[in-house]
Design a protein around this nucleic acid. Structure first.
Lengths: 167, 167
DNA sequence: ACAAATTAGTTTCTATGCAAATCATTCATA
DNA sequence: TATGAATGATTTGCATAGAAACTAATTTGT
C-alpha cells in the first residue's frame, strides 16, 4: 500500500517520538508534580518576562485556548499569576509568582527535563543532523502558518533571536 | 539557560511536528469524518487482519486504554467490529466491517492522508536522512520499552516485516 | 484441584490540544 | 462621534493519551 518503506518508517518514528514526549511529560517530570507542557510554559515565562497569553501560546506552538487550561492549573498551584494589562484591558499579562521564581532558581535542571539532558549527551554534529532533518520535516508539513513568531510582545520581551537560529 | 541552541531548536521542531500532525489529523482528514488516529487504526486493521486490542495498541504506539476509546468511536460509526475470541475469552478480536472494508478499497488515498502524500514528494535520500535522524531521536528518547512489536498475534497475522525495516 | 499470579480488556480520572462560539475591549471608519 | 470590524482571552465540546483501578478469564504453583 505504501510504496516507500521510508515513509512508513518515518511516520512510525513520529508516533514514537510522540509517545516518548508524552512519557517524559508524565513519568520523568511528575517528580515535580508538573507535566511537560507546564514545565515548558514556566521556562518560557521565566525567560521571556511578563507575557501575554497569546504570546505564550506562540512560544509553545499551541493555540491560546490550550494555554488557558495550562495557566489555570499553574495558577491553582500558585506558580504563576495573571494580571490584566492597564494599557489594553483585553490583554492578560502572565508572570511567575515568587513561588514560581523560586522553583526555577532552585531546580533549573528539573525545568529542563530529562529530554534535554538526553539530547545534551549527543555529539554536536549529531544534534545538527537531527535538527536539520526535523527542520526539513517541519517544512514539508507546512507548519509555518502557526506561530506568528511573536513579533510585537510586551516591552520586556527581548526579541530578535528568531525561532530557527544559527544552529 | 540552554547551552546548546540545537537542543532548543530540536525541541521546538518536535513541538511543531506535533502541531502539524494534529493539523493533518483535524483539517485534512476531517473530510472523511475520521481523525488521524482513527484513520491510522483502520489502516493497521486493514493490513494486519483480525487483531487483538493490545496488538493494535502496539502498532499504533499507544496504550490499550487509548485504543478502547478509538475503537468505541469507530464501532459507533460502523467501520469495525469487536468479536470475543473463542480460544481465549479474554481476548477481543478487531476486524473491519463490510463498510470499513469498502472505505479502504474505495478511498485508499484518503486513508494514507496528506502527510504521506507530502512525504512521498521527497527524494529518496532525503527521506532516508530524515528517517535516520528520527530513528536516532527515538533511540535517545528510549521508547523501546513501549511497543513489544507484536511477536505473537493471531493466526492470520503475517509477521516478520519488523518495525524498523530495511529503509 | 485449588489458590495465587498473570493476562486482556475496560473504566475512571486527569491533562493536553483544537475548533468554534462568546464576551469584553479597542480600533477604524463613515 | 457612533457604529461596525478586529483583537484578546475565555468557554464549550470533542478527541486523543496515560496511569491506576477494576473485572473476567487463564495459567501457574503447590
Amino acid at each position: 500500500m505504501n510504496a516507500d518503506p521510508c515513509v512508513e518508517s518515518i511516520i512510525n518514528n513520529i508516533r514514537r517520538v510522540f509517545q516518548a514526549f508524552n512519557d517524559y511529560s508524565k513519568r520523568a517530570n511528575m517528580e515535580t508534580g508538573l507535566t511537560g507542557p507546564q514545565l515548558w510554559a514556566i521556562k518560557m515565562i521565566s525567560e521571556n518576562g511578563p507575557l501575554r497569553v497569546s504570546d505564550l501560546a506562540s512560544l509553545l506552538f499551541v493555540r491560546p485556548g490550550t494555554v488557558v487550561g495550562i495557566l489555570d492549573r499553574l495558577e491553582k498551584k500558585g506558580l504563576v499569576s495573571r494580571v490584566r494589562s492597564q494599557q489594553d484591558r483585553r490583554e492578560v499579562m502572565i508572570e511567575l509568582s515568587p513561588t514560581g521564581r523560586e522553583l526555577v532558581s532552585t531546580a533549573p535542571g528539573v525545568i529542563q527535563g530529562s529530554l534535554v539532558r538526553g539530547l545534551e549527551t549527543m555529539a554536536k554534529e549529531d544534534l545538527q543532523a537531527i535538527d536539520a532533518s526535523m527542520t526539513r520535516l517541519v517544512a514539508i508539513l507546512g507548519v509555518q502558518h502557526v506561530s506568528p513568531l511573536l513579533i510585537r510582545g510586551h516591552a520586556d520581551i527581548v526579541r530578535g533571536k528568531g525561532e530557527l537560529p544559527e544552529c
